[in-house]
Write a protein that binds this DNA or RNA. Structure first.
Length: 228
DNA sequence: CCAGACGTTGTT
DNA sequence: GTCTGG
DNA sequence: CCAGACGTTGTT
DNA sequence: GTCTGG
């Protein structure tokens, strides 16, 4: 699955990489090494133009009467998207790309949880397929939120975890975002990617969502390595 | 018809 | 054990 | 995802 | 809001 990730790129890099035409006014993005559920991150949409909107991680369905439900909606299984009421209605018009440049998985090793950082070898952008929704709170404010779609992991990283985010690259990004794309074709994009990902164990520093520095993605130290 | 759920993951 | 908050 | 709380009453 | 279960 995917319950923690990074986006260490800044606004200008995001705009350049995704050919963003519109960045939501007043949204200030600060790069993060430790994005946890509930955090607000830039999300890419294609609504007339390519635009970035700030959204909260953990999808809050429009019918929810409490935003807490978002805690349980951080991921959506690609295999069952069309069967689940909460997600199926979003598939047609509410597809988005969750912008990141790596994510964390925890592997149980000898009863301890070891975080691994998974990323492209060149640390380039990693585009996750997502769905989003708008929820209106009691004060009448609109809150946009998203979920990351998961799929089977690539062989190379399946020993770490049995799920991975659905990753898009190249022309698939536009296909996923474009509402003209038929549902069948869009769903076809949610398969494990061909491109290989790199991974390495990191310090448990990343475990606490309060910690956010380059230490999160540094290789675990010698003392921790010796415990492996 | 109304009531009640609506989700994923990991672990046991 | 389970839920909430980050 | 992990970490940390999980409760009420009365008093300050 | 919409679907499932009763």
């Amino acid at each position: 699955m995917c319950g923690r990730k990074t986006l260490t790129k800044d606004k200008l890099e995001i705009i350049a990489n995704y050919l963003v035409e519109q960045w939501e006014e007043d949204f200030v993005w600060k790069p993060s090494f430790n994005i946890a559920p509930t955090h607000i991150t830039p999300i890419l949409l294609h609504d007339q133009v390519r635009k970035i909107k700030p959204m909260r991680w953990g999808l809050i369905p429009h019918w929810a009467d409490d935003m807490k439900i978002g805690n349980k909606m951080i991921n959506a299984r690609s295999e069952t998207l069309t069967e689940k009421r909460t997600f199926s209605n979003l598939l047609k018009q509410r597809r988005c790309v969750v912008i990141s440049d790596g994510y964390y998985e925890w592997k149980i090793e000898k009863k301890i949880k070891r975080p691994y950082y998974i990323h492209y070898a060149d640390n380039s952008f990693l585009s996750m397929a997502g769905l989003w929704s708008t929820w209106i709170n009691q004060a009448g404010e609109k809150i946009n939120s998203y979920t990351v779609i998961t799929t089977l992991p690539q062989e190379e990283i399946s020993h770490i975890h049995n799920r991975m985010p659905a990753i898009l690259s190249g022309k698939d990004i536009e296909k996923w975002l474009n509402c003209e794309t038929s549902l069948d074709i869009a769903l076809e994009l949610l398969k494990p990617i061909e491109q290989k990902l790199k991974y390495y164990p990191v310090s448990i520093f990343v475990n606490s969502p309060m910690n956010n520095s380059i230490k999160c993605i540094q290789l675990m130290n010698d003392k921790e390595l010796s415990l492996l």
